[in-house]
Design a protein around this nucleic acid. Structure first.
Lengths: 132, 132
DNA sequence: AGTATTTATTTAGCTAGGTAAATAAATTTC
DNA sequence: GAAATTTATTTACCTAGCTAAATAAATACT
């Protein structure tokens, strides 16, 4: 395996695991947080909007939302178009979000703080160049 | 979610999916290939050596090796220390490896070819800087 | 209007990562 | 040398991605 890919995959797993560790105090997994954050920024979204935005397949989002719903973080309501379900943050989620956001910002700062802004930009550019 | 992380996770998934697609012709998944390649380079290894080298937890490797064994890619034999299992490539795997390697090299060249060697090094350095 | 196609979501089932705990063999300690 | 600890592997069970196929509602076609 190309060492570059190996390093990329490993760092990706490492960051995910760290994030999960940090989010334990809020009883959340990183992917669940990603969805909550997405809803916080965009307001209510359909499942399709969510999975297209996050660049993930639909079944992953169906499962995650089901879990988030039973845990009380989101509500699923029927849209005008009765095929679609609109997902909104629950009042509980709205209340918890500020403190979770604080946790996340600290984590991100710690994780990425060793890179200058230019290096972060450079990193994104290099990532972008890896296409198929 | 920090856009840098988002981009990192996404690219990681994207490359994995592409790799899976390319490996379909050999009836392999990317993680299975990673293990075969590892064994090819190091010769017979215990499960512990494999998961430590690949930086993954033991159960992931147990499962993957079990699958690779039933598919005929590897053999599991008891070591002198009877706690450990030594994994070796099967003759079938040895025979298939060259052509699979060719597939992989072409894929990696296509995927990473847009980056100069300096950019690849730079990328690794930046990745390295993201610690916890 | 009735049929065909598209679109949104879900279900089923796979790989692949993780943790926690069980088991069995080897090693250390007393 | 018996008991305690460590080490290697496995099992059970979770999240999280994927594809393929099912379902149900909306839209397009004739």
């Amino acid at each position: 395996m190309n060492p570059l890919f190996h390093a990329l995959f490993q760092k990706s797993r490492y960051i995910t695991n760290c994030l999960n560790e940090v989010l334990k105090q809020h009883n959340l997994y990183s992917s669940q947080w990603t969805i909550l954050y997405c809803l916080h920024n965009h307001g209510p979204m359909t499942l399709t909007q969510i999975w297209k935005y996050l660049n993930v397949e639909a079944p992953s989002i169906t499962r995650a939302i089901t879990r988030l719903e039973t845990l009380g973080w989101v509500l699923r309501v029927e849209g005008e178009d009765k095929r679609e379900k609109i997902v909104t943050l629950s009042p509980y989620a709205e209340k918890q979000l500020p403190v979770i956001t604080k946790t996340i910002l600290a984590f991100e700062e710690e994780m990425v703080g060793a890179l200058t802004v230019e290096e972060q930009q450079q990193f994104m550019i290099l990532l972008e160049k890896m296409k198929g």
